[in-house]
Simulated assay, not measured.
Amino acid sequence: MHARAIAATTTALLGAVAVLMPTSALAGGIGGEPPLVIAHRGASAYAPENTLAAVDEAAERDIEWVENDVQRTKDGELVVLHDDNLRRTTDVEEVFPDRAPWKVKDFTTAEIARLDAGSWFGPEYAGTRVPTLEQYLRRVERHHQKLLLEIKNPVLYPGIEQQTLKVLGNEGWLDRKHVGTRLIVQSFSADSIRTVHALKPSVRTGFLGTPSVAELPAYSEFTDLINPSHGSISTGWVAAVHAFTGAHGSPLEVFAWTVDKASDARRVAGYGVDGIISNKPDAVREAVQDG
Rank of each mutant, 00 (worst) to 15 (best):
L81F: 14
T10P: 07
N170P: 07
N227W: 10
A247S: 14
S189M: 09
D91E: 02
G118W: 06
G29D: 02
D106C: 06
D260K: 09
T73W: 02
A59D: 06
H178E: 06
K280I: 10
P154E: 02
E221P: 04
V37S: 02
R139Y: 12
Y136M: 02
K146E: 08
L149S: 04
F188G: 12
V273F: 01
S234P: 07
E286P: 07
A269S: 10
L26G: 11
E94L: 11
T23A: 14
V273I: 00
D106Y: 02
S250D: 13
L208P: 05
R176G: 14
E94F: 03
G291V: 04
S234L: 10
L165S: 09
H197F: 13
R138I: 06
K103S: 12
H197V: 10
Y125M: 05
G127T: 04
A256E: 00
K105C: 11
V104W: 03
A110Y: 03
F107Q: 02
G172V: 09
E57Y: 08
G118K: 04
H40S: 06
L13R: 15
G42E: 10
K200L: 04
N227R: 04
V213L: 07
R41H: 10
L147S: 12
A110F: 01
A8G: 08
R114S: 05
H248C: 09
